[in-house]
Amino acid sequence: MMALWEILISASFWAAAIRIASPLIFATLGELICERAGVLNLGIEGIMVMGAFTGWFAVYLGLPLWGGVAVAFASGMLFGLLHATLTVPFGLSQHVVGLGITLLATATAYFAYRLALPQVTSPPRIDPFQPLPVPILSDIPFFGPALFTQTALTYAAFGLALVVGLVLYRTPLGLAVRAVGENPAAAAAQGLSVTGLRMGAVIIGSGFMAVGGAFLTLSAFSSFFFDMVNGRGWICIALVVFGAWRPGKAVLGAVLFAAFDAGQVRLQQTELGAVLPYQLFLALPFILSIVALVIMSRRAEVPAALMVPYNKGER
C-alpha cells in the first residue's frame, strides 16, 4: 500500500501518465469525430501504424518534426478517404471496411519500411520532440514537472481536445456533424449533405488517428519498429465509449488508462513485483479499463445512427 501511495505522489509518475495518454488522446478524438458523425472507424489501429511510419520516415528523410506530423496527418486522411468512400456513399459494412483498412495500412507501412530500409538490423533513430517547459507554470512544485514539462505534441493533444469540444458543441459545423450521427434523415431534411459531412468527419478523424501514431515515433520512441502501436487503436475505440462520445470525458479516460499503465511499470519494481508474476502487472491496465468501461458506459448515449448507412431516396 505504501508503495502505491509513493507512486501516486511522485511527479514523474504523473508526467509519464500524461505522456502515455497523449497518443491515445489524438486517436480517441479522431475516432470520436468519426463516430459522432455515425461512422465506426475500425481502421484506427492500422492508420496509427501508418501515421507512426510516415511521420517518422518524413523526419528521417530530413523534414522538420512538424513536417513529419503534417505528413502523418495527410497519410491518415488518405486512408480516411478510402474508408469514407467505401462506407458512406457505397454504404458497405463498417466493420469489414475498418478491419480491412487496419490490415492494409499496417501491412503497407511494414512493407514500405522494409523497402526503404532493407539492410538495417537496429531501427534508425531520429531526434524527437524535446520537453518544452512552459514558462512560470513549469516552476510550480509537483504540477510543474508533472504537467508543464511535456513535449509540444502533448500540449497539442490537450489543445485539440478543447478545440474538438468547442467545434462540436458551439459551431454550426459541430451541430451538423452530431446531427448526421443522430438522425441523418433529419439533417438531410434541413438541407445538409449527409454524405459530405460524414466523409469529412471520417477523413479528418483519420488524420488525427495518424498523428496519434506519429506521436509514438516522433515524441516517444524516436524510431519505428514493428508492433509498436500494439493495440492502442483498439483501446481508443473503448475510450470513446468510456468517454460517452464526449471529448472531455474521453481525455479523462485516456489519462486514467495511461495512469494504470504508468503505475503498473512502477509497481513491478516494488516488493510486490518480486512476489507476483510480471504478466499480472501488464494485464492490470486492461483489467481496470474493462471495469471502468462497464461502470462508465451504462448511461452513455450512443449516437443513434452509429453504423447506420444513409441512402437517400430509400424507403
Binding site: 454550426p172 451538423a176 433529419a186 431534411a189 448515449e301
Partner: peptide, 19 residues
C-alpha cells in the same frame, strides 16, 4: 425528422447557418 438527443433549438437551427 428530429434528432432525439439534441435540443429543440439545435434541431431548429441545424443547417440554417454557414457550416
Amino acid at each position: 425528422t428530429l434528432a432525439d438527443h439534441l435540443s429543440v433549438l439545435e434541431n431548429i437551427v441545424l443547417g440554417t447557418r454557414p457550416l
